[in-house]
Design a protein around this nucleic acid. Structure first.
Lengths: 235, 235
DNA sequence: AGATTAAAAAAAATCGTTTTTTTCTGGATC
DNA sequence: GATCCAGAAAAAAACGATTTTTTTTAATCT
């Protein structure tokens, strides 16, 4: 199990080291994953006792995990009426997409302005890891590849990581996860007729050339074409 | 007690209606207020049992309230080691200020672009309410005036309220509250040698004239001069 | 029949206690 | 004198049971 509350991978060198995270954190991670990959459908009522049996823990960790997920907009809470999986809608999605573009635009601009050598290198590495990994598992089926997802997120995070604001980075991370959820819900794992790999490449090289305008416009259209594709399939 | 978790005022027409909010929500509101006004000093360890006695509730609501406040960056949590009040520093503050300017810039631009008649009118009203209220309580002492704080926040919220993204509005709200905390900590309630009222007026009229560039630059310098003033007094 | 109210069931919220983990303290060792 | 290890104390985390609140069901009245 991962140590962090956020989705991600435990890169620790000692895989057998004992898990120091609380049950709350572990449970939050599991529920988060289940919501992101669609195991819990949008709008589903999350009954405390059900979750307790499903995840094999008491009410305290479950309740606290749900509180945590509320702040990431994956779970909604109504006082005295419990929790439910955040609902999805076309309107919510386009607001999400719009906001994400606004925030990432600024983050990328700042990152290009302030990024140092280490940033450039981390970006190149992240792109390399992403590029040599197949989007879908062998044989062209459209199942999502979890490894690819992780590398894809790592690449987009690397792009903006030098923006100079951990606050903004956290917001972008939240919006990224919400976006993934829409991708999972729509059942899409690949975009026919698009060369995603080339888009990433083009964004990266503009960033490395310190051409903020071009990099931003490529990033935005990357997001927007993905967005349009998703919107068509929503409901 | 307010119904909402967020700081604010209950504007309900029936003041005697029974409080439907959970103990968790009430407690979160009380702890939030205590952190914002400085009753809990930054870095203070928040021991569950202490909070239970202080607020007269059990461990569950306290624990959940702290989880909630974590997402607003008012409380920090370390697994297995409990909670503490978020620390403050000059570096954190300037990051906060910077991020806030980035987000509010975009929000104000969008708001000016899309705001309708109702937005204009709400803005005028909010400014009116703010302008006819004294910043400090009678006789020039520098005690913060809670009423003024509420109207001030309402004015700044009104400015950006037509931006079209509730997500962005929520982020701005969070950053506003974090900023207030710095203001309270620094012990400042008024800025000698500045005409805050005139600054608000100038921002508003540029916004009403739909001059985004001028409005934004006035808003940013409003924040930055406040920011510089605060930074001087931090540690 | 439809609406209103009362009782029962279900679920959320809360509490007090138990378990686990961390922190503190004092002494032994190098 | 500093470091390292118990063991004790304190605190956090988790649990299971109890209390409230909401929702559902059933019955009564117009």
């Amino acid at each position: 199990m991962e140590t962090s509350l956020k989705s991600g991978i435990d890169h620790s060198a000692t895989p057998l080291r004992r898990d120091t995270s609380s049950l709350t954190a572990q449970t939050a991670g599991r529920i988060r994953a289940d919501i992101l990959n669609g195991a819990w459908k949008p709008g589903t009522k999350l009954k405390i006792s059900d979750l307790c049996t499903r995840y094999g823990v008491g009410t305290t960790p479950v309740r606290e995990a749900l509180s945590l997920l509320t702040s990431d907009n994956l779970v909604e809470r109504v006082d005295q009426r419990g929790f439910r999986v955040a609902v999805v809608s076309k309107a919510e999605f386009s607001e999400l997409l719009k906001t994400r573009c606004w925030l990432e635009k600024r983050a990328l601009e700042e990152s290009i302005l302030h990024g140092d050598r280490a940033w450039e290198e981390a970006l190149v590495i992240a792109h390399h890891h992403l590029a040599r990994f197949p989007r879908t598992r062998e044989g062209g089926d459209f199942d999502a590849n979890p490894e690819w997802e992780i590398r894809h997120k790592a690449f987009h995070t690397a792009l903006i990581s030098a923006c100079g604001s951990s606050i903004l980075l956290r917001y972008c991370d939240q919006l990224y996860d919400q976006n993934i959820r829409y991708r999972m819900i729509s059942g899409i794992s690949a975009y026919p007729s698009r060369r995603i790999g080339e888009e990433h490449e083009a964004i990266m090289s503009a960033a490395l050339d310190r051409d903020a305008d071009v990099a931003v416009s490529r990033l935005i259209s990357h997001y927007e074409s993905t967005g349009r594709f998703l919107e068509e399939r929503l409901r």
